[in-house]
């Protein structure tokens, strides 16, 4: 069973700093990491490979430095990877990104399953996974929390939806986007790191992947970002200290009054 895992390199969000004047992200000194939600897809892919055999291939679209994300996945146990890179890709929205990745995945050849993180922590759209499935016209399940069975070209999965878990039976090939509940990502091993270090990650360009230039980048993207703002986060609420019985009593009284005033109780 061959598995493809698209991954994205993202800025470490816990340290995101915004330039208050321009409203843009300060990228200097911000570390790039593999999208944390992709780790659950990678772990799931490695587990399925351990159970059913086959190869796990990672693919990342981005700057040449996205190779780091691919190597990190290989250090965890993925077999190989590809970086899809070139200036033509810059500015691609989710439609164009889904198109580019689906064409590259077609080019990889035989595979049975594509696993994606639920969304990337920078763009936060969650649209590329379903988009790839739509372009490739393969079965799709999103928010998958467990893979129960794969047998005879059919797979049974559970997906986490509002109020419960839905069980689906789906034909392969398929694409799953997975949630955190599905697996606990392993750490890279020393052997994995060594293997990743010596393995060359091929760079695919628009031409080598057979991608139509007119359907990617800014020109190939149906959407345009017209404005970026930094929302004001601080609300400047009332803060009460509850140090002793008296101040505790007052703080709680004030809180209840506040809730009453807001018509919340």
């Amino acid at each position: 069973m061959n598995i493809i895992i698209p991954v994205k390199q993202v800025p470490e969000t816990s340290n995101v700093k915004m330039d208050e004047k321009t409203g843009t992200m300060i990228r200097d000194g911000v570390e790039s990491i593999i999208n944390p939600l992709d780790l659950y897809a990678i772990e799931t892919g490695i587990q399925l490979k351990e159970k059913f055999g086959g190869l796990v291939t990672v693919i990342s679209m981005g700057p040449p430095a996205a190779e780091r994300a691919v190597k990190e996945a290989m250090a965890m146990g993925c077999d190989g990877g590809i970086v899809l890179t070139g200036k033509e890709f810059a500015g691609s929205d989710t439609w164009a990104t889904s198109y580019a990745l689906s064409e590259a995945i077609r080019k990889i050849g035989t595979w049975d399953l594509i696993l994606c993180g639920e969304r990337a922590t920078d763009g936060d759209t969650g649209q590329v996974g379903p988009g790839i499935a739509s372009f490739l016209d393969i079965s799709l399940a999103t928010y998958v929390s467990s893979v129960e069975d794969i047998d005879n070209g059919l797979m049974v999965v559970e997906r986490l939806v509002e109020g419960g878990y839905e069980k689906l039976q789906m034909e392969l090939p398929a694409l799953l986007t997975v949630v955190k509940e599905i697996s606990y990502p392993r750490l890279p091993t020393l052997r994995g790191k060594q293997k990743a270090r010596v393995t060359e990650v091929p760079r695919w360009s628009v031409d080598s992947a057979g991608i139509d230039k007119n359907r990617i980048g800014l020109n190939g993207s149906p959407t345009r970002v017209v404005k970026i703002e930094t929302p004001k986060v601080a609300r400047g609420g009332k803060i009460f200290a509850a140090k002793d019985e008296e101040s505790l009593g007052r703080a709680v009284d004030e809180l209840v009054d506040f809730l009453v005033m807001k018509e919340l109780i």
Binding site: D93, T94, W95, S98, Y99, D124, T125, G126, Q127, V128, G129, P130, G131, A133, S134, F135, L140, T142, Y143, R159, L160, V161, E162, S221, P222, T223
Partner: peptide
């Protein structure tokens, strides 16, 4: 932007050849 909307709309927007903005 429920689990349904966030699955269905990307799938449709690709095939309708149009843009989609999430959430």
């Amino acid at each position: 932007a429920t689990t349904t909307g966030r699955t269905l709309m990307p799938h449709v927007s690709i095939r309708a050849n149009t843009g989609l903005t999430a959430d």
